[in-house]
Write a protein that binds this DNA or RNA. Structure first.
Length: 457
RNA sequence: GACCCGUUCGUCUAGAGGCCUAGGACACUGGCCUUUCACGCCGGCAACACGGGUUCGAAUCCCGUACGGGUCGCCA
């Protein structure tokens, strides 16, 4: 049997971080089994669904490399089909028209809540001839006794007594299908074999199964994954910072880091931490998923991001340092050489231009507050001497290091006498990678210009 | 309230009765390296929610308690 999974977000905003993980798990499971991973937009609630939100979700999925196979299905477009199924269930006697008004329902619900009972519509077994002339909903007839057990891929065997299940509404008073009906019909029609979703749907599954059984369809395999919580353990909400996947892109996180982090959040493969997409595909399975909700930890995401930044190519890093701007060939070459060293101290993509900005041009860089104190009169005197003695030709870092060693000996100086002040004058900063490597990459002309510019006294 | 699910270091987790004086990662922290910062390396802190069983032996199995989460919509 070929595996078919789906990610079915409701387009009420952006791609939620929890949704992104659900999508990832669906994607991974499908790929693992050589199956298909589909997308369905649950836009049944037209009032809350917007085209912008649909676009935002696609944007988020695309960023993470989790586009669905083929075009996304729009649930709202399938309403006629959903209604047909409800009619069929009505005809077969599995469903009934319920004429309860919202007010009556509210009262019954309150009553049921206090007694711990489920609500039961009096119309379930009423004589159709007594039906009033007013809008009605179509409800599924739940079995009155017995129980249902779901063998969930993550939760294991879960059993619920039918006596706790109320007759779910499939068609609203205005004739439109509800989510409960729509998911079931769509999953069936799309041939979904494995339903992987948040465990907030676990209880719904028992209701949905009854529609499936009433239609005589095959029940899919379920895997209800635990939700993600905020750092304080509470449900993820706005006060926990960013909720949307793309907000993390804007903050400077890499999609690979995000996927790796999301994968590790609630799923594990022994002690493995850095997991490539290929490994994830070959290792992923429900047995590695924990049952308890996990807390979102930005620190760990950040450390993973730092790792993935370091693994980027020098060319890609150079592009990031330039923030997409054009630069002359010698600058590109310089940045490509320096990039790995810059990457070593970056945690977010936005750190790169801050760290390597001084190398993106040949002008004299401004001194920041930490660098200024390093350039006192003594330091500047040494730097002028250094600039005067420096040979004209370009040198490799090794050659410069050798020359510098000799120069220091001649002048009876130590590296600490020239390193910090040279760094300050040439980069404008107190902290950078190896100054010898930087100096070599800048070349004598730029070095002299910057020393003179920043040591005018 | 009813019904479902869960509970190992601060956080993510390894762990499927003896391999556990509980391992890894992030965070925190001591040190080394060094021209600064970072990386790296070495070390430290720190957990089986609680109480009963079962067993020669339990983080692992059973029961209860506490706490946390989820669901109970003509929302999805």
């Amino acid at each position: 049997m070929s595996v078919v999974t789906r990610f079915a977000p409701s387009p009420t905003g952006f791609l939620h971080i929890g949704g992104a993980r659900t999508a990832l798990f669906n994607y991974l499971f499908a790929r693992r089994h050589g199956g298909r991973y589909l997308l369905r937009i649950e836009d049944t609630d037209l009032e809350r669904s917007t085209p912008e939100a649909v676009a935002a979700i696609h944007d988020g999925l695309n960023w993470l490399g989790l586009d669905g196979d083929g075009d996304a299905v729009s649930q709202s477009a399938r309403a006629p089909r959903h209604i047909d199924v409800a009619e069929e269930l009505l005809k077969a006697g599995h469903a009934y028209r319920c004429y309860l008004t919202p007010e009556e329902l509210a009262a019954m619900r309150e009553e049921a809540r206090s007694t711990g009972q489920k609500i039961t519509s009096p119309w379930r077994d009423a004589d159709p001839a007594t039906a009033p002339d007013r809008p009605y909903t179509v409800r599924l007839k739940m079995p009155l006794d017995g129980e249902t057990t779901i063998s969930d891929g993550v939760q294991g065997d879960v059993t619920v007594a039918h006596s706790t299940l109320d007759d779910l509404v499939m068609l609203r008073g205005d004739g439109s299908p509800t989510y409960m009906l729509a998911v079931v019909v769509d999953d069936h029609d799309m041939g979904i074999t494995h339903v992987i979703r948040g465990d907030d749907h676990l209880n719904n599954a028992f209701r949905q199964i009854k529609i499936i059984e009433a239609m005589g369809w095959e029940t899919p395999h379920y895997a209800h994954i635990p939700l993600i919580h905020g750092a304080d353990g509470a449900k993820l909400s706005k006060r926990h910072g960013a909720l949307s996947a793309t907000a993390y892109r804007d903050m400077g996180f890499l999609p690979d880091a995000m996927c790796n982090y999301l994968l590790k959040l609630g799923w594990s493969h022994g002690d493995d931490e850095i997991i490539s997409r290929d490994d994830a595909i070959s290792w992923f399975g429900f047995d590695g998923i924990g049952k308890a909700p996990a807390r979102f930890d930005t620190d760990k995401l950040t450390s993973l991001n730092a790792h993935y930044i370091r693994s980027m190519t020098p060319e890609a890093l150079a592009g990031l340092i330039l923030e997409g701007k054009d630069a002359p060939a010698h600058i590109i070459e310089r940045l490509t050489m320096l990039a790995p060293a810059f990457a070593e101290r970056a945690q977010l993509l936005g750190d790169l231009p801050k760290i390597g900005g001084f190398a993106t041009h040949d002008d004299v860089p401004a001194l920041d507050d930490d660098a200024k104190p390093l350039l006192d009169d003594d330091a500047c005197a040494r730097l002028h001497q250094f600039a005067a003695d420096l040979p004209d030709g370009d040198m490799t870092p090794e050659e410069l290091k050798t020359w510098l060693g000799g120069w220091l000996d001649q002048n009876n100086l130590k590296m600490r006498d020239i390193g910090p002040c040279l760094r300050a004058a040439v980069t404008g900063m107190k902290q950078t990678p190896d100054i010898v490597m930087i100096a070599a990459s800048l070349g004598p002309a730029v070095l002299r210009k910057r020393i003179e510019g920043n040591c005018k006294k």
